[in-house]
Write a protein that binds this DNA or RNA. Structure first.
Lengths: 141, 141
DNA sequence: TAAAATTAGTTAGCTAAACAACTATTTTTT
DNA sequence: AAAAAATAGTTGTTTAGCTAACTAATTTTA
């Protein structure tokens, strides 16, 4: 039975959360995707980082990060320059517009998080983290 | 911290499972994606069904199903005809080639499933299902 | 130091998700 | 029966994930 399939459940839930979050952002007139938000957040927590680092944090490959970074730059939420030390590397930082967005976003993201995790006990939150980690570990190699 | 983010964990795990499964299929020389497999499976369990039904089962929208069905038809795994009773509806069935593929796939899919769920107790499997359901329910409305 | 290997990032091509707008057919309403 | 609404499916557009192939710069090694 397909609805008992764990992959199906996990994938569906991921889609559902993304969709819900996206709708909330849209309703607030915020022009950013959930995935772009994750990128923005990594850059915010690691100013002047490069794309490889962002990719490592988010476990996404170079082309995906490259495109998302370009989107964020186009939207003027980040500033992308070339490193003096190593001209292969990009140096990513948050623009003023980006900082403003982030400040607006924090409570909204927190609200989305709380909605999704509503009625989940602390144990359940910990359990799901542990179980998902186990699954990923099972698939590593 | 981003790595504590539940959405991130769920979405990452979904990606990891898909990626792992895709690699196994590729290594077996099987020309189908994991998502296409899910569609094929629904059709196999509901011969002569239509695209709306497949979409309901997989919780995917019409365009997504439409395109995946077309891929499966192009690969000659399914046969798509128009319903006599209602010419708006497609009638989807598995071709001989498709049946052969499915028979080859069942043990491989089962193997992927077992690898992913390895070392998970029955309770853990049930727990994750319950928790994911709760999250989705939280987001419904 | 010159050649080889590694690293950072981009471009191209494919699949899939989500949305909007559309066609065609069937069903409901008046 | 004609008009309106609902249903099934398609097409177009955008974002993202993944692979492969590429450029350019830096580091390693011989």
């Amino acid at each position: 039975m397909i609805n008992n399939n764990t992959y199906f459940q996990i994938e569906l839930t991921a889609r559902r959360i993304r969709q819900y979050g996206q709708n909330v952002l849209k309703s607030q007139g915020i022009d950013i995707t959930i995935e772009q938000w994750l990128v923005l957040n990594v850059i915010n927590e690691n100013e002047y980082t490069n794309q490889i680092y962002v990719g490592e944090k988010l476990v996404k490959d170079k082309p995906t990060i490259s495109r998302m970074v370009n989107q964020l730059e186009k939207k003027e939420f980040i500033i992308k320059t070339t490193s003096f030390k190593d001209s292969r590397k990009a140096e990513l930082s948050i623009s003023k517009k980006g900082k403003k967005l982030i400040n607006n976003l924090y409570p909204i993201i927190e609200q989305i998080r709380l909605t999704g995790l509503n009625e989940l006990s602390k144990t359940e939150k910990e359990n799901i983290r542990i179980i998902l980690e186990k699954i990923r570990k099972n698939l590593d190699h």
